[in-house]
Design a protein around this nucleic acid. Structure first.
Lengths: 338, 338
DNA sequence: GTGAAAGCGCTAACAG
DNA sequence: CTGTTAGCGCTTTCAC
């Protein structure tokens, strides 16, 4: 069932049918209803390829996921993707997922852009200095960054207020009487980690506290690195009374390290972790957490945003969305005990 | 730079240029080289949308990932996807990822099929009785199943020989002197779990052993359910000397449960787990495992297969691929000690 | 309010 | 071997 058949069936021109279906104004109400009904009963579905060709749009947006053989995939990424596809579906826009090796990533963008396969991109896992963003900005391809890079004034992004989250965490601990606060963080090449780190320093400064260099520990986005970092922290002669961990994978490892040493979490040592504890974990402790919209929700919002970006009739300011985190109180922190 | 511009530049017809670029035989070698070189230097990239329209093919395959809000995404899925996209890229075929709620899943297939957005599908997470497969078979849409369903004779699939894997595991334990063997498994609605379970029973039968009903424990695809299952097993008055676990998420939990009870893995209790221990885990024990091609490798092979399926000139037998698992010896099993 | 006709960029018969 | 000519199915000026 194509447009021609449908219009023949209705004794109308393809033009009219097309306009009726696409909600143009200059069609009589009666005709429109007749057309829509016939389309429904005959099960007419416009061919998206033909439509794309005629309109010069791909009706698809791309997302490139850099994943080497042997890499561990990030389950949260899939959840974002799920939200994105859901938010894109009503507009009949598809999500094209391309994976690329880290070094071949720009080529992949290039292929997709020049091949006119997508109308725009979502760039995930933003780095502080991100050559993908530089590249896209330079080529003028519409895109939305999931996370800001260092230079974030002149392109659209969706992000969390990472500084604010850390400040909230510090404030809470300070209110509980803590003054010796440690911080475990992922690589500062990730901009979210950089921002959270900056927020931690700022929160400390605001509270009149000086962060101790030996209590600022790098870890990674992995359970094991969190375990190691926490172990190293606990090996020190002078211990903090509280610790903030900037991602929940490292968080799992850190908590396990404390348990292994018989430390009473929330009493001996207060802990606040970003995003709580991941869903499928053996730990049952309710962690005090910095929480943000879920990955799915974020995906949904990003779907709306990227559509606006592509439409191109919004001000840049309306294409930059910063979500405010909150503190979800749990049982992993408590008053500072001398 | 489009085809017309390129042919104008070369003083050739669009036809000839098109044929030269698409590797048709009836073009003189000289012309072809000239064309290819010009295309390269001028950076010509054919418009895939136009090509799709002309050829009546979407040049994309779809993969539907059912993910409800709140579900935990399976990182391995992303690894498969990565392999698939990689394998599809040389043929300029895109991977369209659509997520769907469980109940809306068939609608999603329908939309993609009738919208002619894809030439075929890969169906992941196959169930033993899978309505998606029934649906696709019935509508005649080309597809490849990642995992067989109960009725698997008349459609293409890629799968592991799950029965064989369990038999291997049992045989190894029996050779080590074990006779009391427990089995922890995911929901038997998943066909892989059903098959591994069947393989376990078969292996026991072949060894002249009768499986004990109370040592067959259901768990899920999750750490915590593995922990629970193993705890329940260890609470029993009579204990087995070995246990096989059919997935590595439950495996993590089970191992942790043993450690928490001070059980010496490989001495007090021998353990074999499918797929080893997942990458980012706090456990360091080298597990004896049933191993299979990695997710990425599987994805690559599936990419080849689905292309054959779509081409449609292979026998069904060549479109069904069964990979043989192997045993990777580790430190988690040992001789049965009375 | 409706229709005729010209593309969108490429492929594929069919001639030569 | 190469070129001419129709499409693929839809959108969109431009007339009426």
């Amino acid at each position: 069932m194509d447009l021609k058949a449908l219009s023949l069936h209705l004794n109308l021109s393809m033009t009219t049918v097309s306009r009726a279906l696409n909600g143009y104004s200059d069609v009589s109400l009666k005709t429109r209803q007749r057309v829509i009904e016939a389309a429904q009963t005959l099960g007419y579905q416009p061919n998206p390829v033909a439509r794309s060709l005629a309109r010069g749009k791909a009706n698809a947006i791309g997302i490139v996921y850099p994943l080497e053989a042997g890499d561990v995939a990030d389950p949260r990424f899939l959840e974002v993707v799920s939200g994105i596809t859901e938010g894109l579906a009503p507009a009949k826009i598809d999500l094209l997922l391309a994976s690329a090796t880290h070094k071949g990533e720009l080529d992949t963008y290039d292929r997709l852009v020049h091949g006119r396969r997508v109308d725009g991109f979502i760039v995930a896992r933003t780095l502080r200095h991100d050559e993908r963003i530089d590249y896209l900005r330079q080529t003028g391809v519409p895109f939305l960054a999931y996370g800001r890079s260092a230079q974030c004034n002149d392109y659209p992004w969706f992000d969390f207020d990472n500084e604010a989250g850390s400040v909230l965490a510090v404030e809470r601990l300070v209110a509980l009487g803590h003054r010796r606060i440690a911080y475990i963080h992922a690589s500062l090449d990730y901009n979210f980690a950089f921002q959270r780190h900056a927020g931690f320093l700022q929160g400390m400064r605001m509270a009149g506290l000086a962060p101790e260099a030996q209590w600022l520990l790098p870890a990674g986005l992995a359970r094991r690195s969190g375990y190691t970092a926490m172990s190293r922290l606990l090996d020190q002669p002078a211990l903090p009374s509280a610790v903030i961990i900037d991602n929940n994978l490292a968080g799992v490892g850190a908590v396990r390290a404390m348990l292994d040493r018989g430390i009473a979490i929330g009493r001996d040592l207060s802990v606040i972790v970003y995003d709580g504890i991941p869903p499928d974990t053996l730990l049952t402790l309710k962690m005090t957490s910095v929480v943000q919209p879920t990955q799915q929700e974020s995906g949904l919002r990003m779907a709306q945003l990227i559509q606006k970006v592509i439409a191109g009739d919004d001000l840049l300011a309306d294409l930059q969305m910063l979500c405010q985190p909150e503190i979800l109180p749990g049982e992993s922190d408590g008053p500072c005990r001398p």
